[in-house]
């Protein structure tokens, strides 16, 4: 049974960056904005977090830097799409292309650096309980934050007044504007939250998952996070299930060989991407469900009539 603890630990580590980024994107999309730049924001968050941690020695500062970097990236997107009304799909792609290049440029000075991984928050006594202790009580700060954030977002969207306003803006921007809400301002805030969370997701990769920097180290996780939001039909509860399912799929490669399964590694590496396609097909084919849950104004530019 000694495989249980390491197995669950790898699943949690693989799921956390997806959950962080997807939670942010869910809020962004609920406000009616489709930001396809998650991959780029994660990469810039990853290098910002790593560079600051490596230079200052403080992981706390690194995490803050990642949040700021992700937010700044989302502000570029917000300015182009919300203020200048540029096409959201094209701008999101641009954000990813830019993020890949920018992170690689900044990161070229940090290749080969080593940092200590984020420390687990151990609680004396409890963390020592066999199996449950290390899995539930020995994780690092960002793992707990990912859970707290998704619960918080769930409460925010379902119970808070501000959450209702945000959903109203995403479902009918003209009505929300007519009632007197500032559509653009709310969308700016929701987009910035998405950027901050994507930055955190990236920081988790470079500070905890593999405490180092490598070009393109997100390897499509930003895109998988986007697919997860669809998979969850824009509901935070299902986001957790989806993120952990994908975490499980992506670590199968690590454990398959130990279990004596010999499939070429490339085919194992394909699994998360193939699973994303299959999941999208299954969820999207239920058109009624998508129509019921998707923000009605997603991807549409808004311009107040004057």
């Amino acid at each position: 049974m000694e495989w249980i603890v390491p197995f669950f630990l790898t699943v949690i580590t693989a799921s956390t960056p997806l959950l962080l980024a997807a939670t942010g994107e869910l809020v962004t999309e609920k406000s009616g904005v489709l930001n396809l730049g998650v991959e780029g924001m994660m990469l810039v968050g990853a290098i910002a977090g790593f560079a600051v941690t490596a230079s200052s020695g403080s992981a706390g500062l690194g995490i803050i830097a990642a949040v700021i970097a992700g937010t700044l990236m989302s502000l570029i997107f917000a300015f182009l799409t919300l203020t200048l009304m540029a096409n959201q799909v094209a701008t999101g792609l641009a954000l990813t292309i830019f993020g890949v290049g920018f992170s690689a440029l900044v990161g070229s000075g940090f290749v080969g650096f080593a940092i200590d991984p984020l420390p687990g928050l151990s609680i004396p006594g409890i963390s020592a309980i066999p199996i449950i202790g290390p899995i539930l009580f020995g994780q690092d700060f960002l793992v707990y934050l990912s859970i707290v954030a998704v619960i918080g977002v769930g409460w925010f969207l379902a119970r808070s007044r501000a959450g209702l306003v945000l959903k109203a803006v995403g479902d009918s921007h003209h009505s929300a504007h007519a009632i007197g809400y500032s559509v653009i301002k709310i969308r700016y805030l929701a987009t910035m939250f998405g950027g901050a969370m994507a930055g955190l997701g990236g920081a988790y990769l470079s500070l905890s998952y593999t405490p180092m920097w490598a070009e393109n180290m997100t390897a499509g996780r930003g895109w998988i996070a986007l697919a997860l939001v669809v998979f969850a039909t824009w509901r935070p509860g299902r986001l957790v299930a989806g993120a952990y399912m994908f975490g499980l799929i992506s670590v199968m490669q690590l454990h398959a060989q130990g279990a004596g399964i010999h499939v070429p590694s490339q085919f194992m590496s394909m699994l998360p991407y193939l699973a994303t396609v299959i999941v999208l097909v299954i969820i999207s084919s239920d058109r009624a469900k998508i129509r019921l849950n998707a923000p009605a104004c997603i991807g549409q530019a808004f311009r107040a009539a004057q």
């Binding site: 780029g40 570029i76 182009l80 200048l84 540029a86 096409n87 094209a90 701008t91 792609l93 641009a94 954000l95 292309i97 830019f98 993020g99 890949v100 290049g101 920018f102 992170s103 690689a104 440029l105 990161g107 070229s108 070009e215």
Partner: peptide, 15 residues
């Protein structure tokens, strides 16, 4: 990576 950076910035300005 400067290449990718230029390409991204160009697309931003284009949009």
């Amino acid at each position: 990576a400067v290449t990718g950076l230029f390409q991204g910035i160009l697309l931003f300005f284009l949009l």
